[in-house]
Structures are given as C-alpha cells and as structure tokens.
C-alpha cells in the first residue's frame, strides 16, 4: 500500500515519467540543446578574438578624423601615412568600417554595421510575430511574417556581401591587411563568415517553412510548432550577432 502511494506521488512530480519534465516537446528541447552547443562554438571564436585583440596594443589615438567629416579618396593609405594604421597596433574599428553604400567621401563610422544590426533585430521581431500568429492558427498572417523574416535575412546577407567586398577591395586578405595585425582581417573573415553561414542556413530553413505554411502542412497538423523551432534558431542567429557586434566593432 505504501509502495503504491509512493509511486503515485512520483507520477505527480516532473521526473516521475509519462510526461516531459521540461514541459516542451522533444523537437524543441533538442533545438535548445543544439543551440547551446552552437553557442559554445561561437563563444570559442569570440574568446579567441578577445584574447588576440588584447595581446596587441590598443588602437592609436584618433584626433584627426571626426564622424561625418569629409575624407580623401584613398582613406586607408592616408591612415597609414598618418600613423593610425600600423602593423603592431590593433586598428580602431570606426576607422576601418566607415563606408556606406552609395555615399562616398564622408566618414560614417559604424553606421553601416548599425544598420545591419537593426535589420537583424527587426527580422527577429517579424519571426516572433509569425510564431505568435501561429498560436492563433492564422495561416495568412504566419505566411506574411515569415516572408518579411526571409526578406530581412536576405537583406542582412546582402549587407554582409557588400561589407566583405569593400573590405577585400581595400586589401584585406586572410593572411594580411593594410589596417593592422594580420590576425585582424583573418578573425573578421572567420567570425563574420561563420555567422553569415548561420544566417544563410536560417534563411534556407525559413524558406522551407514558408513553403510548408503556404501548403497548409501545419494547418493540417493542427499546430505551428515547426515555426517556433525554426524561430528559436533564427533568434539565436540574432543573439550571436549582438555579441559579434559587441566584440568586433565596440571592444
């Protein structure tokens, strides 16, 4: 008798079996665990960045170039001459990333990368709105928000392609760059490249889910949990960008 009572109380606790102790489905739990392991990978890259960055002297004091001021055509060469870009000093990010599409000759430090951050945050919002619409089983609304998320992701990838093109055009390579220590450009390509690859995978997943939503796959299934799972991945990509942004451009 005592035994049966114990068993029945065990059933009532989360770990007694018969139900998920985390109160989420198998797929969602696995997505969380995958994201945790992916976070470790990104952390290792950012830790490597932080370590290498601080084993070099800080950027040279910049007193000549003010934001929004006019700059010469060959900005990088001018910075080299002015002694702001030297081989053994880490370059100041605001002097390296000061370009904006279609605007020439004006020093716009970190403007473009801030725009990229806003694009990614906004696409995260449309994703969570798609999830929210999924709870209400509004197929059309889910589809529209998914489409906006895909556009946001594609816009971000386009921005990144432009940024890489500009960076490479100025002479940055995996094995060297005109801004400072060799590892500066190498780390830039590896960290933003790895993140960009995640964004690309996210856009592909979003497109697959978008097509499934349009086909009514989830409507038939009775729930939009797949949108939530891919949403988790998409928010994670946004989350990683917050830290890439902090480490690469601010620290």
């Amino acid at each position: 008798m005592a035994n049966t009572t114990n068993l029945s109380t065990d059933k009532k606790t989360s770990w007694g079996g018969g139900k998920s102790p985390f109160s989420v489905s198998y797929g969602k739990l696995m997505m969380w665990i995958f994201l945790l392991s992916d976070a470790f990978t990104f952390s290792s890259l950012l830790i490597a960045y932080g370590f290498i960055r601080y084993s070099f002297p800080s950027p040279m004091e910049n007193t000549i170039v003010k934001p929004l001021s006019h700059v010469a055509e060959h900005f990088t060469e001018a910075m080299n001459k002015a002694g702001l870009f030297v081989q053994d000093h880490w370059p100041a990010p605001e002097l390296v990333f000061n370009h904006f599409p279609f605007i020439h000759g004006i020093h716009l430090p970190l403007f473009f990368v801030s725009l990229m951050t806003f694009i990614l945050i906004f696409s995260s919002v449309t994703m969570v709105l798609a999830v929210e619409a999924g709870h209400r089983m509004q197929k059309k609304e889910v589809a529209n928000y998914m489409l906006l998320t895909i556009i946001g992701g594609a816009a971000f990838l386009g921005c990144q392609a432009w940024e890489w093109t500009t960076f490479i055009g100025e002479g940055a390579k995996l094995y060297g760059n005109p801004f400072g220590p060799r590892s500066f450009a190498a780390l830039f390509f590896i960290v933003t490249g790895f993140h960009g690859f995640h964004v690309f995978s996210g856009v592909v997943l979003n497109i697959i889910i978008y097509i499934n939503v349009l086909n009514g796959t989830y409507e038939k299934r009775g729930h939009y949990e797949m949108v939530e799972k891919v949403g988790l991945y998409w928010h994670f990509v946004d989350l990683v960008w917050v830290f890439v942004f902090t480490f690469f451009y601010l620290i």
Binding site: S14, P21, F22, S23, V24, L29, W32, L36, S124, V125, M127, V128, V131, E228, G231, L232, H235, F236, D238, L239, V242, F243, T246, L250, I251
Partner: peptide, 29 residues
C-alpha cells in the same frame, strides 16, 4: 559593453525565444 550585450541577450532569449515563460529547469539547463 559585455554587460549591455548580456542585457540584450536576456531580452532576446527571455521574450523572443519564450524562455521567460518556460519551466525554470529548462532555463537553468
């Protein structure tokens, strides 16, 4: 800057990723 990043991470994970409304055991994991 890292602290500001962590605050942003809290909002993304807590609200967007729904963590704030999940079981505490999932959050700690």
């Amino acid at each position: 800057f890292i602290l500001l990043g962590v605050v942003k991470a809290w909002y993304i994970v807590g609200i967007f990723m729904h963590m704030k409304f999940e079981r505490k055991v999932l959050m700690y994991m």
